[in-house]
Design a binder for these strands. Sequence first.
DNA 1: GTCTATAGTAGGATAGAC
DNA 2: GTCTATCCTACTATAGAC
Lengths: 190, 190
Amino acid sequence: MKTPTRKEEIIKSAAKLFLERGYSAVTMRDLAKELGIKAASLYNHISSKHEILESLIISVAEEFTVGMNQIFLSELSTLEKVEQVIHLHIDVTVKNQDALGSLNNDWMHLEGKALPYFEQMRNQYEENFRQIIKSGIAEGSIAARDPEILLFSVLSTLRTLYLWYPKKNSIDMQTLKADMTATMLASIRA
Amino acid sequence: MKTPTRKEEIIKSAAKLFLERGYSAVTMRDLAKELGIKAASLYNHISSKHEILESLIISVAEEFTVGMNQIFLSELSTLEKVEQVIHLHIDVTVKNQDALGSLNNDWMHLEGKALPYFEQMRNQYEENFRQIIKSGIAEGSIAARDPEILLFSVLSTLRTLYLWYPKKNSIDMQTLKADMTATMLASIRA
DNA sequence: GTCTATAGTAGGATAGAC
DNA sequence: GTCTATCCTACTATAGAC
């Protein structure tokens, strides 16, 4: 637990406000007020509003990408892989609660190379998940339904976890993971 | 198929842009350009940018509310009710594709009475769905897991349909409804 | 590291001509 | 019903003092 730098504090506060109101609706004055300083002072630590968004989204996207690649390339069974992906999502969501809002709703405001970079990560992630589901269908461990519907059904729940998790912090993590995983596996299992 | 009024055209174009970029990031100049007119001309048909948002969100929210109330008060079995709710979501999403983006991501920018009105409809909708799921668990037709997780799992998928549906318009509606319903019912059925 | 002051731009909205 | 011109406000970001 090192002391956060001022830059980290700014990014953390920004994530919270972006989640509540969206990137475009949050002004640098809002952000400064949240930190108890003036807007101009922010620029001693960050170079632009865009830099904050990029930093938020790209770091979380990379976390998902690394985790998914490990699972995809592992020797686990198909259903174990799906289970690991679900756990990955829960872990990343718990660790980056607020940033998930920007990743889901403000990624289109990324600029320059960051946008195609993000889109490429997102596509690759989806493609890996799609392959896992398809091989599950082929081997009979996953229900023989349209793989796109199965993919969408699971992904939509995982991607929306960030909206729901904060309200339920009374449930302990073990129960959450177990029950969540059971529900999602039930929806795709053969 | 009556000819749409200019106001309806404006609202429709706005829904499309709000979906792509979010309410706050779309300017009246953007919207005017989309319609091939100047920003000032918009005000001959609408009184403010907010009015557009409110009109978009409230009308769809009311459609959901009316549909849910009918289902909730019907004599159907619990699983049939869940099935009807899924069909309601698919139908409303297909009919109001773009507006669903605002409903999901820009509701917090509603002003005045519209915000509490929307929140009340949303809460009542969720509460009705929660009751359906709970009585299913009580009677044994729905799996004996945490009802909040079941509710969230189904709702998150239904609420995200609008993001996914437009990409899949090759699938015909019958297949979509059937497969979607099967997948979601599988995730909660006992 | 934060401040005040301010440049420069872009936003929502109105007035009044055509 | 649309236009041009414009008001007023608020935005991101910079300059320079402390």
